[in-house]
Design a protein around this nucleic acid. Structure first.
Lengths: 348, 348
DNA sequence: CTGAAAGCGCTTACAG
DNA sequence: CTGAAAGCGCTTACAG
C-alpha cells in the first residue's frame, strides 16, 4: 500500500468541491458556530476520517502560535523521584492533548539555561521546571517573554512564582519528631548539595525546629551536607569516623532518597546495624524502600498530586493567559510519614 | 524590560537593509557557499546575536518538513530500566540538536497505537520504540509512510526492523550456567507477562538451553509467567505453596528486575533466606541491586550503548534517508554477569 | 450557509 | 555577490 501523500486541506476541499475555510471550520468543531449545514459537516467528517487526515502541526502552529507541547526541566530523569514525576506529568498532559519534551539539567546551571532557551525556541507553550539555578534571572526572562511556567519541587524565596511543592519543613519536622518520640536524643541530619536548593534548606530547618522544640541540643557536628557527586564515599568517611570515635548518633534523618540508598550500603559495609545501632528516617518514599532490609520509614511526597497540580496550573495559564497573569498560584502539599522498620524505640 | 516581540527575518533584513534571503543563508551557514561577502556575514551574525534571534521552528518546519524532534515510546518511563534508557537517549539527542518527546504505553496496545499516531501527527522525524504490541501492523504502517524508526529492547521475529537489543538468550544462559556451576540442580525461572514479548521469550530459551546443555531435567513446574499487574501476590502464592510442599528450588533465575524486587519482599515476608534457602540471579542491573541485602547477582545490560546506538541509527536514517532505506541495521549487544551476594555455592 | 484572500515566518529555486 | 517571489499548510477576519 502506498501512502497517499499530501493529504491537505486543499486536497479534501477539492475532493468535496467546497472551500478550505469550510473544511477547517468543521474540523475544528466550529461547524455549528458558523452555521455549516449538517449534511455538509457529515460529508467533511466522513472524508477526513476515511483519509485519516490530521492537520499539519507546523502550519497550524505557525498560524495560531501554539504547539500543544510543554517542556519539563529536571536535574535527572533517571532519578526515581523525577522519573515518577515525569511519568505522571506525561499522563496528565496527554489526557489534555499536550505533548511533553523532557530535558535533564544534571544540576548544571549553564546547561539548564541552554535547555530553557532551546525549549522556548521550539515554541513550547509553557514549562514545568525543577530548577538547579542559584538565581532567578532565567525565570525573570521567562516572565518578560510572557512564557508561562510552573516551578515544582524547588522554589525561590526571593522571587515568587507559580509553584507546586510539598511542605518540606513540616515533613522534616514530623520525621524528626517521630524519632524524638521514639526516644532518640542524638539525631543527625544529612542533606545533599548544592546547599542552596530550597528543599534541602527547608528540610534542615524542619529538622532543627523539631530538635529545638523538644529542648534538645542542636549539635552542629550532626549536620552534614553530602556532596552530590560523591555520596557513598562521603557518608562512608563520616560514619567510619563516628563509629571509631564511638560518637555515632542513635538516629539519622536523611533529607534525600539517594543519601538513604548509599547509607544503607555504607552501614552494611561498616557492619552498622539498622535499626539496631542506628535508626533512620528518609525523605521520599521510593519503591525500593519497602523492599530493603529493613524497610525504610520515610516521608512520602504526593507525587501524583504534585504532577497533576503543576499541569493544571500550567494549562490554565496557557489557555487563559490574561485572566491569570496577575494571580500567583502557589500550592504546598502535605507529606505523610510512612512507618516501616528502620526505627528502633529507645528507653531513656 | 519589555520583550522585543516578533524578531523575525524581515525585521533583521530591514534593520540591515538587505534581503531575507541573505539573512537566511548566512544564519544557516551557507554564507560562503553563496558567496556572501565576509563583511556582510559579520554584520548579520552580530545583529542576530545581539537580538538573540532564533528562527521560528514552525515556519522552518513547515518549509523544510523537519522538526528535529524524535519520539520515544516505552511502556513506563518510571520503570528504572526505561528511565535510564530515556535519560541516555535524551543526552545523545540533545548533543545532536534533537529534542525528545517521551510517551508511555502502559503495555496497552490501543494506547501505543494512539501514541504513535499522535507522534506522527506532531511531525516527529523518527521514532524509537519498545513496543508492547502483539503484531506488526503499526510498524508496517510506519514503513509505508516512510517514517524512520528503531526498535529497542523488544523485537519481532517475523518482521525484521532496524533494532538495538541485547543478546537476551545468551545473558539468560550465562546466568543459569553460573547457577549450575555453583552446584544448583533445581533451578526455577520466572518471567513476566505478556508472554509474547521477545525479551521474556529469549530469556526463557536461554535458561532452558543452559539446563539442557548440562543434562539437567527441565521441570515445567519450575517455569512461571508472573502477571505484570499482580507481581507480589503471584510470587507470594507460588513460593508459599512451594515452601509448604518443601518443593522450593535451590535457585531462581528472574527474567526481569521488577520480579526480583517483589521476590525480595516475598522472601522477607515468608522468612525465606537469600541466599541461604534460595539463590537468585536477576536480569537487569538496577542501582538498588547493589544496595539490597544481600546484593543481587545479575545480568547487566549496556544501557548507554543501547541508547547511543539507537539514536545513531535513527539519526542516520533521518538524515540520509535514501542511502539507508534498504539496509537493515540490527545490533545485538552483549550482556555481562555481575556477581554479588545472592548466590550460594552448593556441594552435591 | 459559504468562499476568496491574506498572512503566519521561514527557505529556496530562479534570475541577474 | 544579492533580491523578488513563490510556496509550505493552515486559520481567520471579511464579504456576501
Amino acid at each position: 500500500m502506498t501512502h497517499l501523500k499530501n493529504v491537505s486541506l486543499s486536497y479534501i476541499a477539492q475532493r468535496l468541491g467546497v472551500s478550505k475555510t469550510l473544511i477547517s471550520m468543521v474540523i475544528n468543531g466550529n461547524g455549528d458556530k458558523y452555521g455549516i449545514s449538517k449534511k455538509t459537516q457529515e460529508r467533511v467528517l466522513k472524508l477526513v476520517k476515511d483519509l485519516d487526515y490530521k492537520p499539519n502541526q507546523f502550519a497550524r502552529g505557525l498560524r495560531i502560535g501554539k504547539s500543544n507541547t510543554i517542556g519539563l526541566v529536571v536535574s535527572d530523569i533517571s532519578n526515581t523521584f523525577y522519573a515518577r514525576i515525569a511519568r505522571n506529568i506525561e499522563d496528565y498532559c496527554s489526557q489534555q492533548d499536550y505533548n511533553l519534551i523532557i530535558c535533564n539539567s544534571d544540576e548544571n546551571q549553564e546547561k539548564e539555561i541552554r535547555i530553557i532557551n532551546n525549549l522556548i525556541n521550539k515554541q513550547v507553550d509553557g514549562l514545568i521546571i525543577s530548577s538547579t539555578i542559584n538565581d532567578t534571572k532565567h525565570l525573570e526572562l521567562l516572565n518578560d517573554k510572557g512564557i508561562p511556567f510552573v516551578l515544582i519541587d524547588r522554589i525561590y524565596y526571593t522571587y515568587p512564582c507559580n509553584h507546586v511543592i510539598v511542605n518540606n519543613f513540616q515533613g522534616a519536622k514530623d520525621a524528626t519528631s517521630y524519632l524524638i518520640r521514639k526516644g532518640h536524643r542524638n539525631i543527625a541530619c544529612f542533606t545533599i548539595s548544592p546547599e542552596y536548593i530550597s528543599t534541602q534548606v527547608d528540610r534542615f530547618s524542619g529538622y532543627r525546629s523539631a530538635i529545638e522544640e523538644h529542648f534538645l541540643h542542636f549539635n552542629r557536628k550532626n549536620y552534614k551536607v553530602i556532596p552530590r557527586d560523591d555520596i557513598y564515599n562521603s557518608i562512608f568517611r563520616i560514619l567510619k569516623i563516628m563509629k571509631n570515635n564511638k560518637s555515632l548518633p542513635t538516629a539519622i534523618f536523611l533529607a534525600n532518597n539517594q543519601l538513604t540508598l548509599s547509607l544503607l550500603k555504607v552501614c552494611s559495609d561498616l557492619e552498622i546495624n539498622i535499626p539496631g545501632d542506628i535508626s533512620i528516617v528518609s525523605f521520599d518514599d521510593i519503591e525500593v524502600f519497602s523492599f530493603t532490609n529493613p524497610s525504610i520509614t520515610c516521608v512520602s511526597q504526593p507525587i501524583e498530586s504534585i504532577s497533576q497540580n503543576a499541569v493544571k496550573i500550567l494549562l490554565e495559564l496557557i489557555e487563559k493567559k490574561d485572566m491569570y497573569k496577575d494571580t500567583l498560584k502557589q500550592i504546598s502539599l502535605k507529606t505523610s510519614l510512612v512507618k516501616r522498620n528502620s526505627v528502633k524505640k529507645i528507653n531513656n
